[in-house]
Amino acid sequence: MQTKIHTSKKLEKLVKKLIRNDQNDEDGILGKWNATVFYVERKKCWLISNARSQYNVILSDIKKLDLDKIEEIFKNTLYAQLVYDGIIMDFNHLSTIIGGLNFQPTDNDRKTMGFQNHRLQDLNYWKHEFGSLDNMPIKDLTNRINTSPIHIGEGQKMSDYTDPIEEIKKLLKE
């Protein structure tokens, strides 16, 4: 099992050695993810969003040396964020669901990219509230993003509005 993570053009330039172009692989149980890079005090941080649920994970202060163990960093951060958001599950089960990470070039998913850009604006606002990256409660900020209402569906009914935490719960139950 492999989980596809499509990178933005900016992130693709930073992680060229991780990018593979095997488009034939199926998406994992959670579907595809999109990743982009943003900076806090000149430190690289990644915003990784699940395209189906719009659930977010922030990897902070990622250095070039961390790329060799990025799979472990992602799984640990995702697990910690799920626990923080009240979704309790076994780490080994989550690791099995994720499988290996397959970094892909951008897929130009405009909906997810627009969603990420909107969330980055929220983070930019909160950056000024906390000052330095060391003072930023990353899990709390990610939780704020994940509890923001989102629209899933075609209509304009109130039942089409939910939040990413509820949507990722549904995916994990499948």
Score class of each variant (00 low, 15 high):
residue 4 K to S: 07
residue 6 H to Q: 10
residue 7 T to H: 05
residue 11 L to P: 02
residue 11 L to D: 07
residue 12 E to C: 05
residue 14 L to H: 10
residue 17 K to M: 10
residue 22 D to P: 05
residue 24 N to L: 15
residue 28 G to I: 03
residue 31 G to R: 02
residue 32 K to E: 01
residue 35 A to K: 02
residue 38 F to I: 01
residue 45 C to S: 11
residue 46 W to E: 04
residue 47 L to V: 00
residue 48 I to W: 01
residue 51 A to F: 11
residue 53 S to I: 07
residue 57 V to Y: 00
residue 66 D to Q: 08
residue 68 D to S: 09
residue 70 I to L: 15
residue 71 E to V: 10
residue 73 I to P: 02
residue 75 K to P: 00
residue 76 N to S: 14
residue 77 T to G: 06
residue 77 T to V: 07
residue 80 A to Y: 05
residue 81 Q to T: 13
residue 81 Q to N: 10
residue 82 L to I: 09
residue 82 L to K: 02
residue 85 D to A: 07
residue 87 I to G: 13
residue 88 I to T: 09
residue 89 M to H: 06
residue 93 H to F: 12
residue 93 H to Q: 13
residue 96 T to E: 11
residue 110 R to S: 14
residue 110 R to I: 12
residue 112 T to G: 04
residue 114 G to I: 00
residue 117 N to I: 08
residue 118 H to T: 11
residue 118 H to I: 08
residue 120 L to G: 00
residue 126 W to M: 12
residue 128 H to D: 03
residue 131 G to F: 06
residue 131 G to Q: 00
residue 131 G to C: 03
residue 133 L to N: 03
residue 136 M to Q: 13
residue 137 P to S: 15
residue 137 P to Q: 12
residue 137 P to T: 15
residue 141 L to I: 13
residue 144 R to G: 13
residue 148 S to V: 11
residue 153 G to A: 04
residue 154 E to T: 05
residue 157 K to D: 05
residue 160 D to T: 04
residue 161 Y to D: 02
residue 161 Y to I: 02
residue 163 D to N: 14
residue 165 I to L: 03
residue 169 K to F: 05
residue 170 K to Y: 04
residue 172 L to I: 03
residue 174 E to C: 12
